[in-house]
Amino acid sequence: MNNALEINNLSIHYQTDSGEVRALRNVNLKVPDGKVVGIVGESGCGKSTLMSAIINLLSENAIVKNGKILFENTDILTMSKHRLRKLRGYDIATVFQDPMTTFNPVMTIGQQLTDFQHRFKERNRQQKRQKIIEMFELVGIPDPAQRLNQFPHEFSGGMRQRMAIAAALLMNPRLLVADEPTTALDVTMEAQILHLLRKMKNDFNGSILIITHHLGVVAELCDYITVMYAGEVVEQGTVEDIFYRPSHPYTKALLECDPAVLKRKTRYLPTIKGRIPDLRTPPPGCVFANRCSKVSAQCTQTAPPVVDLSDGNHWCICHEVSK
């Protein structure tokens, strides 16, 4: 099976006044053709950094320490400007995390989404607008024809989120990368969007990389799941592997905390105790050691090994599991 996207050994640091933030450390990830891969993990574990790297639009203070991001066997991180522009918004479409700041505040939504279709030379202005209207209907924007002439601030957060998704879908991309695309939505809307993404996956045979901190979202949609913690991938596997045979203590803890997966009735939502380590000085051993319930002396000293759980499809990094 071919991979739409392959990330090898990627490490990215941010230069700041208070030191280097090691936002990503040796991340490996594959997105097979036509499959949906979910990335889960708490805030601040490097998910958005990974997404910016995929379209080579990292902040100016980011440094790629090592690694490659392969799209059709070409490294995105060293691509020519010309090839990059073709990649962005054509091969790969993106939905950014914060819907409130995604759109230009002084241009109408219609102007912007028409502009974004600049690659489709065969469509004239009227047809481009028609495409937007159809897509808006699909994502549930009422009255799309009128609303094209409105400015972003005239829409609610949820609507902007849906318009961002519509913009990405308009591109008919080979790979859709969506950063927490359902965070600003209520439960019904979230279900609708997930349905839409699933439908898109079936219709056009593209691949999807979806980032979320919410396991329930990925369960519905994904074929594979990557669990990230503090800038590292700690476990990777199929949806079944992760939900039915979780191995890494962090994955287990995440599952226990997910309201959709809770088995018993509780008064309080459980959370994982402790906090993510400071990424300027990540611990020498396992990154999860300070919060892990099964921590041993070894965990705080040496980096955990990769444990293969099924022919390289399901693996995690953990001293405890390796025993």
Binding site: R88, F96, T101, N104, Q112, D115, M171
Partner: peptide
């Protein structure tokens, strides 16, 4: 952030600067 969006849709730097 909206400038990043414009770039992410493959608009040229000149277009981003002058129009966005």
């Amino acid at each position: 952030q909206h400038i990043r969006t414009a770039r992410a849709f493959g608009l040229s730097e000149t277009r981003v600067v002058f129009r966005y």
